[in-house]
Design a protein around this nucleic acid. Sequence first.
DNA 1: ACCTGAACACCGTTCAAGT
DNA 2: ACCTGAACACCGTTCAAGT
Lengths: 216, 216
Amino acid sequence: MAKQRALLSRDRVLRAAIRLADDSGLDSLTMRKLGQALGVEAMSLYNHVANKDDLLDGMLDLVLSEIDLSPDAADPEAALRKGVISAHEVLMRHPWACGLILSPSPFRVFPARMRYMESLLGRLTDAGFSADLTYHGYHALDSHILGFTLWALGHTLDVEDPAAFAASFVENLRADGYTHLIEHVEQHLDESRRDEKGEFEFKLDLILDGLKRMRG
Amino acid sequence: MAKQRALLSRDRVLRAAIRLADDSGLDSLTMRKLGQALGVEAMSLYNHVANKDDLLDGMLDLVLSEIDLSPDAADPEAALRKGVISAHEVLMRHPWACGLILSPSPFRVFPARMRYMESLLGRLTDAGFSADLTYHGYHALDSHILGFTLWALGHTLDVEDPAAFAASFVENLRADGYTHLIEHVEQHLDESRRDEKGEFEFKLDLILDGLKRMRG
DNA sequence: ACCTGAACACCGTTCAAGT
DNA sequence: ACCTGAACACCGTTCAAGT
């Protein structure tokens, strides 16, 4: 460890925290370990963040800033669809973020989140949806972005050999007659199907097509 | 506290833990507080659950058992829709459950979850969906159940006067020109719209109608 | 067989003391 | 102004000792 470390700053603390959470998960993000990663004692961090909640808010603010929900007057429907997918991709890169945004207490507000909300609502309006459809459509899309992504992340099983795991899982199921579940697991093992982005967009298009039909 | 307490058992421990989490949230569910609620020291709990993860799995097993996904040969489409709504209602009653099921590590398997998966797949098949549509439809519906419910729970702001909170929130937004977001918050304040179940079913019907159209 | 006191290795956070 | 040692009030969990 170099003796001459760069000076601590809020930005350096937040970026180190994101890296630590990306690499090792939120459970590994403790003030002590974060200090260690920065070559400093845990207590020093409190000179740059108010407390751990403030740290988490700051991390989310940087992450949501990566989302690109910019307008496209030439093709507003494509801009909406692309923005939603951008949000999904950003949240998949930072697997700890979705759960944090959706944790009920405290309700987290920070600048990038407001900009995200404003932009998503703007892209819905641009696409020609009425105030009423924009209202419901926002809920459908925001819950798809955060909810589906968290759901997908919650189904990534962290095991060396997924095929072997699934095989022994199916074996256990067979004895108890879970016929539909066995078929579903076998469909998952079909390499041609294992396409997470495809699943996100499949449901996204169900939602978007339904909204467009209601728009008439 | 009565001196003569009923004997501890795994079932009593699990039910007390569910009550504590329902009333005070998952953060309040510590082994020490759970012991206290049962009139016992924390260490006694380890005679009935292997560890805290085993406790959480047991709690989820009881909760998911409340879901009614029974078939209805006379109207299989209604059975599917009713079952999805039943799952949502159960998960709303136990606000800590969704987040736990979707927490990525460990991937939680327990009997009631397998029965839930098997039943949901069965209701999709009953409704006449092909193997392929059942595969994608299961992902769309399961992620809607768990993801939307968690999303909705993550938006319940725990404040004494929501209207006053929203008003001051809007005031802050106005200075920064968040016009779409202001309109959205004002739509939320419209009493006639505040219908959480409506929002769940709005998106559910987008998904179900889309699936039915693909079924042809 | 079931319960518990003491202990261990952790948390977030405060605060007086150092530079 | 920024960093830190010591301390406090918590966690989950183990284990030997009690009944």
